[in-house]
């Protein structure tokens, strides 16, 4: 605050922003901000941070003979169990399916998002609305719709025979789970990709073509690098929920395709090994945290 030379007399004490005055104002603002945030803060501490702490404590606990949990005597047994073949297989299968889902979504969504971004504004908005409808539709219902479609002998068998695929059962296989996951999370890939492609100055594409770059070269050297933030954002938004998916494998998968989400739930509802379930939930959360940090690092906040 600069001092004004020809200040009217008598105002010296009252209206001038002295350091003390500014500090007091800052303190008042700080108090106000804290008070405003307090209800949500307190709520999240009680009903989010405390539960998270309880899960952490359980992950260090021991399961007793009766299926209960012994909270005294912390140890790392539950985490050690993650190295066992059964759990390791489930972990790798979940990782593999989540990666596959992400890759398929990327390949399907990129040309689609590019096509939307090069339409006239009216067509573009219309196309986006029709992406938003499945995006907002109940997730359970969307998975169930695939169960109905894949289980429909009359329809599905006829189509797959007409396409020359022969009589094939898809329901309750890993393929069905991947279809369900791609279906569920494709909008998460389309929207950030669209957002980042739409922002690219497309005259760069034109320039590249003018300079005799092939279509593929233009894509590889111009479009892809410029839309990389969208690619990363979309990939994380698809990968993260795919890894922890529970509803889709339960509805579309079979007994042989147990994934991480289902395995965790089983630990709590039927196997009654709460420490193992808690430690796996923690591992899952750690993966998400790392992915989110990457997301923010690459400027995902802007999408």
């Amino acid at each position: 605050m600069t001092m004004v030379a020809d200040r009217p007399e008598g105002l010296e004490e009252a209206a001038v922003a002295t350091p003390e005055f500014e500090k007091a104002a800052e303190r008042a603002a700080s108090r106000r901000g804290f008070l405003l945030s307090l209800p949500a803060y307190a709520y999240l501490v009680l009903f989010f941070a405390v539960p998270l702490g309880i899960v952490m404590i359980y992950s260090f606990a021991t399961r007793n003979r009766f299926g209960g949990t012994d909270l005294s005597g912390w140890n790392l047994d539950a985490y050690r169990k993650l190295g066992e073949p059964i759990v390791r297989d489930i972990l790798f299968r979940s990782l593999w399916l989540a990666l596959l889902t992400t890759l398929i979504c990327l390949v399907v969504a990129y040309p689609f998002a590019y096509f939307i971004a090069t339409r006239t504004p009216l067509v573009r908005n219309l196309m986006l609305v029709f992406v938003m409808i499945p995006f907002w539709t109940n997730f359970l219902v969307r998975n169930y719709a695939w169960r109905v479609l894949l289980g429909n002998d009359w329809l599905f068998t006829n189509i797959s025979e007409a396409l020359g695929l022969g009589e094939r059962e898809l329901l309750f296989t890993t393929s069905a789970v991947v279809i369900g996951l791609v279906y569920g999370f494709l909008p998460f890939m389309v929207l950030p990709l669209y957002a980042s492609i739409e922002r690219i100055d497309l005259s760069l594409v034109e320039a590249s073509r003018d300079l005799y770059a092939s279509g593929f070269q233009t894509f590889r050297r111009v479009l892809l690098p410029l839309s990389l933030p969208g690619v990363i954002a979309g990939s994380i938004l698809v990968f993260v929920p795919s890894l922890g998916a529970y509803v889709t494998p339960e509805i579309l998968g079979g007994a042989k395709t147990t994934l991480l989400g289902s395995y965790i739930v089983t630990q709590f509802l039927t196997a009654r090994n709460w420490p193992v379930g808690a430690s796996l939930s923690f591992v899952l959360m750690a993966v998400m945290l790392v992915a989110t940090l990457v997301y923010f690092r690459t400027g995902g906040r802007n999408l």
Binding site: P51, V55, P241, G277, M285
Partner: peptide, 14 residues
């Protein structure tokens, strides 16, 4: 960002 399953477990134990 927390996975649904983790949050579900949190609620159960809480």
């Amino acid at each position: 960002i927390i996975p649904d399953v983790t949050m579900a477990v949190m609620m159960l134990l809480f």
